[in-house]
Write a protein that binds this DNA or RNA. Structure first.
Length: 922
RNA sequence: GCGGGUGUGGCGAAAUUGGUAGACGUAUCAGACUUAGGAUCUGACGCCGCGAGGCAUGGGGGUUCGAGUCCCUCCACCCGCACCA
């Protein structure tokens, strides 16, 4: 009887499906555990070996937790709305609903072959109306909420209206550009004015704003979807455009999003990325008078270094700053106009990439230093951003390198306030210097002077402490088709929410789902849908890809609920996701937005926790190892790697599947493409050697490896274990199929502990020896520890060692083997089930209990201790474990080899490290 | 530039956290059994050396009886962020 993995795997996968083996109940006396994979966008390209890496890790952990007695929620679904799905559909010329459905089917069948333990009954799709009904519902909650800054919590908007009616907005503070009003003023506003004011407080709000407009994609993109001035998807140019858009007021949550990072287990680098994105900076705002202009025109700058105020040699304001036209002197008008034209001609991309170039223009105006009255020239320059701080800075050339370069470039005299810390040829951003030329701050160390300066500024009423964030409110609308429609109707310029009983507002079916024109999305073309009988017009943009993924982890808890997005009972039972596995690419997108939604839902009392994920594990990316052939220019002749420099060649990707290691299968190559049919080769040692490069795994690079082929050839269990064996899950590594044989060999060796090809059944019910139990218990301990810390690669090694050792001991004992099978279940579920069954066990192995290890088999009564003299290993000596220090010394000193090294002398010190080694110092 | 991370055999990687470096697996070589082997098993396999032995965890220095592990310093690579005032 041999290991026939194909039959075994098919049989058990069918069985699991037929018996709903992995269905999970919300009612259980067991402790809960929630293991979640980042749900995929079902791309049409199919899986490559990189995709299942995290899924295998999470599957192992879920199965392990289940054996440990937990009620484990381990669901899967699809992020099926969004830009990628729509783009793919457009490329195929098919409706996204159809392509999405097809892709999901392919995806599912590929996943099923690997033997995952998902509870598929809870499957969800973000593009399903029964799901996005609740995405829309949560949007309405965001729309109907505001952030109460004194409670640090979201509150219903009705409660804000009450405050306005009673006392105006004095106590809640200015949000957006709204000025302070009192109760009477509020009552005097008409409906439209009131709604416009409320819009400045809503957590989901609409506003005209500069957005990242991508002409090629015909849509607006979020900041994190724009990389280096081009779209993340497709790499198309992105420009700024003013449009009415929806936003989420994530900036109100900046502090809580930062603070929450202290309580979750994310990697330091991921936390750092989020902190970076939020970009909190503590500083102060200072108001400067402008020479010769009225009191109503003052220059407000933002700085983190108020201590350097006496070192300010010039001011720089953003070219877009409101003051520019107001303060420019007639003499400078011409130059300023020219400069503004230049700035306008610069694309976002150029401004981002050509950062080294120093440009700017003097306005002719001067600000006045409030302490010594010094006249400070005001410049404009594109390096100062309108959107950050006040859009104006005070420049201190001796302390800031950018300011220094600017001063140098335009010959602005530099004031040195830090004495010898400034060497005249570069700025020194130190906080340790003792201030000079700094009026009342003279003699103070800079870091102490900050506090003194800001206090004085506040006393004078010309400055205040100010916290700034780099993060902006998140753009929440897309001029696209394939997304959630907004449950909003515009009436006379007022955004009216749809009543809850009209949800879901279904996405109308259209034939033309391509981009609309002039910024409006495709929905604008469906006039019968847009225009309502009462004169209202539906919002025509749709929600972005991250809408549905911001709360899906909650829906899995209660997926069939028609009355609520998730009952409080269900979310109180499952609580946070205990383990969330996925890549780092969502560090500042999905992971930030879903944290925001969770916090809002928590504030509003719909759920009981305000961080969605307890622990996040980032699986590394599996890269492709590409192979290259070198074609001699203008010929059909290919030259082997080592000889390529003798010719004028260019490198071409060659399909990794026809290369064995680095050796090209030249016959397969000839048949791979018609143009290669007559290819000729210049070989080295009779072989064609390919070049290697590690790149992202992608079809276009011919370096993808399809898991289906590996599963077909070696089985799912081998595939699962090999993916884990490659190395730590969190590390990126190039794929190499070579070693998979070793893992497959291990499973066959395991099989032979139960059945022999010739002899048949070899397992028996004899009593296990101490030596055998020792191997078993050591393995139990190791597997438990490794699985617990996600060290799946070392766990696989431990299995291999265990089977090797049992093989050497000729241990075919059921007592030992069945426990080993339980350990192995999470890693290789099919073979474990089968052997468990063949051992005559009742029930399913997935309901077994993870065995405990007995310490007595791990402890040795005596041990060979290494003995070293002055740290150098000399010999080993067997000593019983309960020997006292004195006894150890006696035994060691009596040893002949040790005596030889001591040369008759007595050691100064004998160090006896229990269970480790003995070292003597002479 | 700033932040995070990594550096160990031909290759993927281990190392109980300061205690015999290279487990486990691949690759390679040798052998056994075989009509055959891409099956199975055994052995060798960091470097130098016939050997005893010596040298080895990116380089250099330090702490320690003892360092891959801790400290200082330099170097290389990967990943984020980047005129953010």
């Amino acid at each position: 009887m041999e290991y026939n993995f194909r039959n075994i795997e098919q049989k058990w996968q069918q069985q699991w499906q037929d018996t709903n083996a992995y269905k999970v109940s919300n009612e259980s006396a067991k402790p809960k555990f929630y293991v979640l994979d980042m749900f995929p966008y079902p791309s049409g390209a199919g899986l490559h070996v990189g995709h299942p890496l995290g899924y295998i890790g999470s599957d192992i952990y879920s199965r392990y937790k289940r054996l440990k007695g937990f009620n484990v929620l381990h669901p899967m679904g699809y992020d099926s709305f969004g830009l990628p799905a729509e783009q793919y559909a457009i490329e195929r010329g098919q409706h996204p609903a159809i392509t999405t459905d097809q892709n999901i089917k392919t995806f599912r069948s590929q996943l099923d072959k690997i033997g995952f333990s998902y509870d598929w009954s809870r499957e969800l799709r973000t593009s399903d109306p029964s799901y996005y009904k609740w995405t829309q519902w949560i949007f309405l909650k965001l729309f109907n909420s505001w952030y109460n800054r004194s409670l640090h919590k979201a509150r219903d908007i009705s409660n804000l209206i009450l405050v306005f009616e009673k006392e105006g907005n004095g106590s809640v503070g200015k949000h957006g550009g709204i000025s302070i009003f009192i109760s009477e003023e509020w009552m005097a506003f008409n409906e439209k004015q009131q709604q416009e004011i409320l819009m400045n407080y809503r957590l989901a709000f609409s506003s005209f704003g500069e957005v990242n407009w991508c002409e090629a994609l015909g849509t607006v993109l979020a900041n994190d979807e724009v990389v280096n001035g081009v779209s993340e998807r497709g790499g198309f140019p992105v420009i700024k455009k003013k449009m009415r858009q929806w936003y989420l007021r994530i900036t109100e949550y900046a502090d809580r999003l930062l603070e929450g990072l202290e309580h979750v287990e994310f990697t330091e680098s991921l936390k750092e990325q989020q902190r970076n994105w939020i970009g909190k900076s503590q500083g102060s705002e200072i108001v400067f008078d402008i020479k010769g202009v009225g009191d109503n025109k003052k220059l407000r700058v933002y700085t983190t270094r108020p201590d350097t105020i006496f070192g300010v040699d010039f001011m720089v304001i953003a070219p877009e700053h409101d003051l520019v036209p107001q303060i420019t002197t007639p003499e400078q008008q011409e130059a300023i106009n020219q400069y503004l034209n230049y700035v306008k001609s610069r694309s976002e991309r150029e401004r981002l990439t050509e950062v080294k170039q120093i440009t700017g223009c003097f306005t002719g105006a001067y600000a006045l230093n409030p302490f010594d009255g010094k006249e400070i020239p005001i410049w404009i320059a594109e390096y100062v951003l309108a959107g950050y701080g006040t859009g104006a800075i005070m420049a201190v050339p001796c302390g800031d390198q950018r300011d220094f370069s600017f001063a140098n470039h335009f010959d602005i005299p530099i004031t040195n306030i830090i004495g010898s810390y400034f060497n005249g040829s570069e700025a020194n951003p130190t906080k340790e210097a003792v201030l000079e030329n700094s009026g009342f701050l003279d003699g103070l160390v800079m870091k102490d002077a900050m506090e003194v300066a800001i206090t004085r500024l506040e006393e004078l009423g010309i400055g205040k402490r100010q916290v700034n964030y780099r993060m902006r409110d998140a753009g929440f609308s897309r001029q696209r088709y394939w997304g959630e429609p907004f449950p909003i109707v515009w009436k006379d310029g007022i955004a009216c929410p749809l009543p809850e009983n009209e949800l879901p507002l279904e996405l109308p079916y259209v034939d033309k789902y391509g981009p609309g024109h002039e910024g409006e999305g495709p929905l604008a073309n469906i006039t019968h849908w847009v225009n309502l009988p009462d004169g209202g017009k539906r919002e025509t943009s749709t929600m972005p890809g991250y809408a549905g993924s911001s709360w899906y982890f909650l829906r899995y808890m209660d997926p069939f609920n028609d009355n609520e997005f998730c009952s409080r009972k269900a979310s109180d039972y499952w609580k946070q996701v205990d383990l969330y596995i996925g890549g780092t690419e969502h560090a500042v997108g999905h992971l930030l937005y879903s944290r925001l939604w969770t916090k809002v839902l928590f504030d509003l009392g719909f759920i009981g926790h305000d961080e969605p994920y307890k622990k996040l594990l980032n699986q590394g990316m599996i890269q492709g190892s590409s192979r290259f052939v070198y074609r001699i220019m203008g010929t059909n002749e290919f030259v082997s790697f080592a000889l390529k420099d003798n010719y004028d060649t260019h490198a071409l990707h060659v399909d990794v599947n026809i290369v064995d290691g680095v050796i090209l299968d030249t016959e397969a190559f000839k048949t791979s493409k018609p143009e290669y049919a007559n290819a000729e080769f210049i070989l080295e040692d009779g072989k064609y050697v390919c070049g290697i490069e590690v790149e992202k795994m992608s079809k276009s690079k011919f370096n993808t490896v399809n898991p289906d082929i590996l599963v077909e050839k070696y089985g799912a269990d081998t595939f699962r274990m090999y993916e884990m064996f490659l190395g730590p899950v969190e590390m990126s590594k190039p794929w190499d199929t070579k070693g998979i044989e070793g893992v497959h060999r291990f499973l066959r060796k395991l099989w032979r502990l139960f059945f022999d090809e010739l002899k048949g059944k070899v397992w028996n019910t004899d009593k296990a020896t101490d030596a055998e139990l020792k191997v078993l218990h050591r393995t139990i301990k190791k597997i438990e520890e490794d699985t617990e810390k996600f060290s799946f690669n070392t766990a696989v090694s431990a299995f291999m060692m265990c089977v090797n050792e049992l093989g050497e001991l000729k241990c075919y004992k059921k007592e030992v083997l069945e426990k080993l099978l339980i350990l192995l279940t999470p890693y290789a579920p099919h073979i474990s089930e089968e052997l468990w069954n063949l051992l005559g066990n009742e029930g399913r192995i997935l309901d077994a209990t993870f065995p405990g290890y007995d310490g007595k088999y791990l402890v040795e009564t005596s041990k060979e201790y290494p003995v070293s003299v002055n740290g150098r290993l000399r010999t080993t000596i067997g000593i019983s474990l309960d020997a006292t220090q004195d006894e150890v010394e006696k035994i060691v000193l009596a040893n002949e080899t040790v005596q030889k090294w001591l040369e008759g002398k007595l050691p100064k010190k004998i160090i006896f490290v229990k269970n480790k080694m003995i070292n003597m110092v002479i």
